[in-house]
Amino acid sequence: MLDLDKHFAVHAAALRLSAQRSEVIARNLANADTPNYKAADFDFRKALDNALGSGGLGMSDAGALRTTQRLHIGGASGSDPLSGIPLTTVNRIPLAPALDGNTVDVSLEQAEFAKNSIRYQASLNFLNSQMRGLMTAITGQ
């Protein structure tokens, strides 16, 4: 049987992470003039791997609940991509730190924000077409 969680896992997690990353970048941009503020970011690939469990792309059942009795309720296989993802933000290494200790490079943040928005849109598109595919299968048209 098709596992819906697995079916949507990658893009659902990527969508969520993109949203979180846009927040981190928004934070950097909001604090572009705050003295001693250090620009932060996180490693998207690592965070995605983290979100999808040890198997990388969520194909491993390592994190699944084990059922030893017939009446046990099994968890969704693979780890839940929508559970709390621990995010470790790292400070950016500035190319040219400002005199007031601020390390936000506004143009870099803008570029990252634009890139991240496109990724978000891409994940949305993938999810949409996956859903369309399912709908086609369900309605048979």
Partner: peptide
Amino acid sequence: INGQETGAAV
């Protein structure tokens, strides 16, 4: 929130 940073406003 729950040890997870939720963003820094200015």
